[in-house]
Design a protein around this nucleic acid. Structure first.
Length: 427
DNA sequence: TCTGGGGTCCTAGGACCC
DNA sequence: TCTGGGGTCCTAGGACCC
């Protein structure tokens, strides 16, 4: 039986989320900006039609924005995450095998589901639209890589009406489509590799499909060998149905305004470590070390540049916020240099293991460990029910002069009592 | 004035061991 | 004169994804 994998992808996801609660944005050019209102990360169709590319710095398109009255919104991840959960849970009804691949994409196993797949996919679109109001497109094929391309075709080509099933096509039809897709659009082929492939006269998805495996293996890597197999309909990438535990947890952020004060960096590092430790405990893991990282703004070449990081191993794996903060601060203080305008700081938890696999040591101090665990549990419970940050370390500070810019952020319409969407009755 | 954040995987090279 | 080979582990860095 032929393998059938669907990729369901939300259209202009963040913009679509914003439009749910601000219907006035419908039909208008809208962008959502990254943290710090830095870059464009989601564009409405109207903005795409103006030729605005993904990840363009916002300050570079100010003129265009004025000219065309583009609405720019700060990103509101609480809202997007909640809408995403609703979409994913609806989609899970369509197959016992689901991989939630990203905030706006999901793979669904359709192999063995004995219905007309195109009709089934139309039903998915309709269901998500009716229940949540988010438009989606569906691509279906015999491997993940092909289903990504099928989705691409469904999105770009109005005549497919949002659903494209490669499995229902003849080889010639499919190749005809692949020949018109740039090799850079293939999943896993980035800008660097696309350039190198073009040097070898591999320009389209079809060219890559037909490339000799040996040739690809030696010139690139096993990853590319797999891509070629997947393009030929040989499924090499399985669906990850349970999200595996993270092997590293990163929390880093650019500052709203650069700072050269160690005290500011310390506050930021404590805040980031606190967040990361919460995530670590959520997935019931411990980490073996923590890395602190600072850097100046690399785009300001006229400024003195400094970037550095230091990994602090822990004496034994831990998930205690206080311990992790202490280690991170130690690292920060050893890399910090006076007189630099730092633009970004971050931390990374590494050497992550399941909490259940905690190694026993000769000098295990069980009572103090149990106290630490109880304290962290209580902390998490209070912050979960009373709002995040209700209880935190004093070192995190209260002023946060370094906090990021979010000039035009919408309400958290679905997750905060104070910001719930209200239906206004018409007179 | 203003350029995101959070992840994964692979490779190369060094250290170390027998 | 002549100085092995193979395995493992770790780290840094590159490339990619959304």
């Amino acid at each position: 039986m032929q393998r059938a994998i669907a990729l369901v992808d939300c259209n202009n996801f963040y913009v679509s989320c914003e439009r749910l609660f601000q219907p006035g944005l419908e039909g208008r050019p809208v962008v959502v900006l990254s943290n710090n209102d830095g870059c464009v990360v989601s564009r409405s169709q109207e903005v795409k039609d103006l030729g605005v590319k993904m990840a363009v710095p916002w300050f570079r398109m100010r003129d265009l924005a004025r000219q065309h009255n583009i609405v720019a919104l700060s990103s509101n991840y609480s809202l997007y995450a909640d809408i995403s959960n609703r979409v994913m849970s609806l989609l899970s009804r369509f197959s016992p095998g689901q991989e939630v691949y990203s905030i706006d994409e999901s793979f669904l196993e359709l192999t063995g589901i004995a219905v007309d797949h195109t009709g089934y996919a139309r039903q998915m679109r309709l269901t998500v639209m009716q229940h949540v109001g988010i438009p989606v497109c569906v691509g279906i094929a015999s491997s993940k890589t092909l289903s990504k391309l099928a989705n691409h075709v469904a999105k770009k080509n109005p005549r497919y009406a949002g659903v494209c099933d490669f499995n229902g096509m003849t080889e010639a039809e499919l190749n005809g489509l692949l020949a018109r897709i740039d090799v850079g659009e293939v999943w896993g082929v980035g800008r660097r590799s696309a350039d190198r492939l073009r040097d070898r006269d591999i320009r389209s998805a079809l060219d890559l499909k037909r490339a000799a495996a040996k040739h690809i293996r030696s010139g690139f890597s096993v990853v590319f060998e797999r891509i070629v197999a997947e393009l030929n309909g040989v499924s090499c990438l399985e669906l990850d149905q349970v999200a595996p535990a993270k092997q590293q947890i990163i929390c880093s952020r650019s500052f709203g305004t650069p700072t050269s004060r160690l005290a500011d960096l310390e506050q930021a590092v404590i805040a980031y470590t606190t967040r990361a430790a919460e995530k670590l405990r959520q997935q019931r893991s411990l980490c073996g070390g923590i890395q602190a990282y600072i850097r100046t703004n690399p785009h300001r070449e006229q400024d003195a540049q400094h970037q550095s990081s230091m990994l602090m191993p822990l004496p034994e794996p831990s998930d205690d916020t206080r311990l992790l903060c202490r280690a991170a601060l130690h690292g920060l203080r050893s890399i910090y240099r006076t007189g630099h305008a730092y633009q970004k700081a971050g931390i990374m938890l590494t050497g992550i293991i399941p909490a259940a696999a905690r190694p026993q040591t000769l000098f295990d101090d069980v009572p103090s460990r149990e106290k630490s665990e109880a304290l962290m549990r209580t902390l998490d419970r209070i912050n979960r029910s009373m709002g995040s940050g209700t209880i935190r370390l004093l070192g995190e500070g209260t002023g946060k002069p370094w906090a990021m810019r979010r000039q035009n952020v919408s309400n958290r319409y679905t997750t905060e009592w104070d910001e719930l969407a209200v239906c206004k009755a018409h007179p």
